[in-house]
């Protein structure tokens, strides 16, 4: 699998963008962009993904630095939990006041 930006004909490498919308929440992947270096990647991320007040913090990560699971190995990776509901904590009652479970 090739990453956009890796070949000589594509000068600007690809970056993945993570935005934290509020203090206390996690950074969430919002999309990707091209930028020549990390300094401009953060600025491009600001321009592309936070202009309507979406964020208080931005991370950019070189797409090439992300190791992904193999789409062809979906079965081996993710299917074993299907049909085994004893793996889920669905039989416990949730404590009052716990919002993000």
């Amino acid at each position: 699998m090739t990453t956009p930006g890796d070949s000589a004909s594509e000068i600007w490498p690809l970056w993945e963008v993570f935005v934290r919308s509020n203090r206390g929440l996690s950074h969430v992947h919002v999309g990707s962009l091209h930028a020549p270096d990390e300094t401009l990647a953060v600025r491009n991320a600001r321009d592309l993904y936070t202009r309507r007040g979406e964020g208080v913090s931005v991370w950019v990560v070189p797409a090439a630095a992300i190791t992904t699971s193999d789409p062809d190995a979906k079965g081996a990776f993710f299917e074993s939990s299907a049909g085994k509901n004893y793996r889920h904590a669905s039989y416990y009652s949730k404590s009052e006041g716990v919002k993000h479970l």
Binding site: H34, R43, N44, D47, L48, R51
Partner: peptide, 11 residues
């Protein structure tokens, strides 16, 4: 020069 710069200058 790049799509990202379109948006930056537009902003």
């Amino acid at each position: 020069p790049e799509l990202e710069e379109d948006v930056a200058l537009g902003n």
